[in-house]
Design a protein around this nucleic acid. Structure first.
Lengths: 335, 335
DNA sequence: ATGAAAGCGCTAACAA
DNA sequence: TTGTTAGCGCTTTCAT
């Protein structure tokens, strides 16, 4: 099929029997026109299914109603809800999203940044697969940037991160509420930002309630295998515990399996919390896991809102934590 | 920071001491210019970090070097590799990707389609979370469309789908190769396109080798729980089997767990194949799963290539299957 | 209340 | 070989 040339404002003007300028005013509500002129133009536009050419509009307005989204790591499980949330908010505001995947490669990142700036995006959202901090983007020529999930190391930048300590506290509180006092923490690698932050917050919060961990946090991989292994370690050391706070749902699921296979019941004997509320894991676990949901979609929406504000000239520099939620399932409260 | 006006070609021309037209030619390699003029212009452009305004370029060229990607279901596990693959090839070709998430909502889809057409994208890729077919997009005013992963019901459209029957045959072949003959199939809902297609292909292929399933395909949910439950059904019916072909990795993992918990060894007693090669599941399974990988990233790249061709005026209507791969792990071949 | 015309940044046809 | 000019589609002064 030959691509039919789309209607221009001249076609509309011609059909309505007015000049281009008048048509423009009618469609944009500028100037003062007679009501019936406006109506005639509108009707002509409808009839031709007129949509203003965004290139022409951008050329004039100096903005593109487009924002770039750079995922620094590969787009992954964490980035998706962020994307969806951001796309949601931006789409509502007439903005479109250009997607760039930098694959953890600084060269690619630089390349994408140039592309986005070259395309004159109105703003940029930077996301990554894991929480923590990152160096700020190189020069963005005054284009506003919001970092989502990971924070820029520069306090002048605007970052929206998950309130991981808050999430950790929710889990700890919940376990205290259901009466647990002999609590262990099994989590990810010691050098990993999230693992550390969450463990520290957990310990502090429990301490404030007069509870001490039965043993220092156990650090390992973010895997089910580590969760199973860690249960073995605890048993070997003859450590008695009635709850385990896990650094991820995967670890928690491993813990659940190991406990079941050694004859202990969750949650009767041991209550268990995960982190991430990753449904594939949390729901498939036996029993399903109580978990902390970082509300990444909400975080993405928040980031997008801040970006919109910044584009409008009201930047909000600093690091903004986004609250997490507790999702209660059978691993802490019997069905 | 005040946004510094970006350099225009006039700035470049002025700095190089030539006219705008000459500068344009120099930068685009058109016309015939003296070598040193070209050099001077290039140098001026570099110095000013000149990047042509895409709005102006689009306005003239009548194209935007942008393609829209609509995910009809929410962006999910399957869409991501597709996105990445497509973004990869398109990005290489100077094209950027506008992302739209229609959330399985026809209204949203229609809205996004209008937006994309309004933005004058050069082409559109439509993807979805599950394989199968869908009605074609409403009028796209001649803008080329490629359907990826799911196929359009119209044969005039261009679709790239996974060769699921081929994938199913790979699994069946592999099991025959490792000497299994008493094979069962446990898969997803009977009404689900993928479940049906894969089961049918499996049966036909085994039949061609003179092997019949030990029992008709067992249909249930796409879940681990169903996998476990199905093993129970087989046992209850006293059906003996030495291999199970599963419709998904999740089902296979459930089967693996149930077998282990009833004292049967995988793969010694029962060999097991999954489908999707979804690492979180396939690798976490005990043992790790042999699985079929649909190479969605490659599929995304293929779709993008076809779209580029179509944009260049060489459409390739029809449904193009993309081959799957067998990934062998411990669930069929002892470590 | 409406029309004419200039200009956004760039490319391409035409002149010189 | 280079410069001049028109025009892509739209908005916006400035005349009328």
């Amino acid at each position: 099929m030959q691509r039919p040339r789309t209607a221009t404002i001249r076609d509309v003007a011609a059909l309505a029997g007015v000049s281009v300028g008048t048509a423009s005013k009618a469609l944009n509500g500028r100037g003062s026109l007679r009501a019936d002129t406006i109506a005639r133009v509108r009707q002509a536009a409808d009839q031709l299914d007129f949509q203003p050419n965004p290139a022409a509009r951008s050329l004039h307005a100096g903005r593109t109603y487009t924002v770039g989204m750079i995922t620094t790591d590969t787009i992954g499980r964490f980035s998706i809800p962020l994307l969806i949330g951001a796309e949601d908010t931006l789409g509502a505001g007439e903005m479109s999203v250009l997607l760039c995947d930098a694959r953890d490669d600084p060269i690619r990142e630089q390349h994408h940044l140039r592309t986005l700036l070259g395309r004159r995006v109105d703003g940029i959202i930077v996301t990554g697969r894991r929480a923590g901090t990152r160096r700020p983007l190189a020069s963005t020529a005054g284009v506003p940037v919001v970092y989502a999930f990971l924070a820029s190391t520069s306090p002048d930048d605007c970052s929206v991160i998950s309130d991981e300590p808050g999430g950790a506290r929710l889990a700890a509180d919940h376990l205290l509420t259901v009466g647990r006092r002999r609590i262990a923490v099994i989590t990810g690698p010691e050098h990993h930002h999230s693992a550390r932050v969450r463990a520290v917050a957990t310990i502090a919060h429990l301490a404030a309630a007069g509870v001490e961990l039965v043993t220092p946090p156990l650090h390992g991989e973010w895997s089910e295998a580590w969760g199973r292994q860690a249960v073995g370690l605890l048993s070997a050391q003859q450590i008695s515990f009635d709850a385990v706070i896990c650094g991820s749902d995967q670890i928690a699921r491993g813990v659940a399996d190991a406990l079941r296979e050694t004859g202990r019941h969750v949650p009767q004997d041991v209550a268990l919390t995960g982190f991430d509320n990753w449904d594939v894991i949390a729901l498939a676990s036996r029993p399903p896991l109580t978990s902390i949901d970082m509300d990444l979609e909400g975080l993405g929406r928040a980031a997008a809102s801040l970006l919109l504000k910044a584009i409008e000239g009201n930047p909000a520099p600093g690091t903004h934590p986004h609250p997490a939620k507790l999702v209660i399932r059978d691993s802490t409260v019997p069905a």
